[in-house]
Amino acid sequence: MTHNDWGSIVYHASIGITTHMKVKATKWIAENADALGAHSIWIGEDIGIGQDVFILSASTLRMTERCRVGTAIVPVSTHNIATLARAALSLCDIGRGRFVFGTGIGGIQDLQRLGIAIKRPVTALRETVLALRNIWKGKTVSAECEVFKLNGFGLHIDAVKDIPVFLGVRGPQMLRLVGQIADGAILSGPLDYLKYATNEIDSSARIAGRDPEDIEKIAWLPTIPTFKGGKESLAKRVVAIVVADMPEKILGMLSVDEGRIHRLRDAVARKGPDAGVPFVNDEMMDMFAITGDLLHMVDMFEKVAALGITEVVLGPPFTGDWRGAVQDIFKEIRLRRE
């Protein structure tokens, strides 16, 4: 954790968008991110909904000059590995090195809905990352695991593409995988969980002979600034998704009403995220989201950063005068640093 001369915690502040958002909104964010001082724009793929994730990434890279752009995440379970390799190569070129490939196995709810069952997700993710890195080195790869099969596939590129790989993970084994092989982690969950997750990643990195400081930890929580007319109901929808995707083991670590959690998960599994909203109470909102007035939200970002998180992501959902709220939040972060 780094502090500035006045003792404030120094962390990167970024913006999160998803493919479900309208082009008008994602365009505004891309066009203003550099001026706002956003370190990154992270792009979540709502599978099968809205904009294509790779075109959205390309256009975001095209419309920015300084900030990096990453997927957060595109699942290895729903795209052919060759598509992932080729899309990442293209985005790396478009962004002239500003692209980060954020990936993961996919959300529990999404995989269930799509009928995808992966027996050994940690192995599948590890093998996929290793294969992709070899492909980006210009190698011809023959390998297979549960989610891909390659037989002499290569991109025939002459230059090695060093594309950072971040993993969107939740469970303990996945966190350890980050420490072993990834350049960063994209995390979401309550503060207690984030502390646990950063510790797990760091200790796994040390065991693997890596410097934990080389691994970035990104926290992307649902954020809802209430000072500009944001709708809490939309934040509840996002919280419902996060809770539904949280592994049982992690939920067991938290002091939450287990019965309510199970009813929420059931509802989301049967009818989708909206059905989970009635089960999201204030306790869950405080635990899984960052909401409130300007000063409270920036305080919360600092609190998150104090857990060893290197970058905090703002949004979505974007409601009310969200453009004004985003500008105010980035201004406040900047003022505290000066």
Binding site: F54, I55, A58, S59, L155, I157
Partner: peptide, 17 residues
């Protein structure tokens, strides 16, 4: 697109711009 090393839809976005 495939087997071109670069993903056509992303390249098309840049070409269109």
């Amino acid at each position: 697109d495939f087997p071109s090393p670069r993903f056509a839809p992303a390249v098309a976005d840049v070409v269109a711009s």
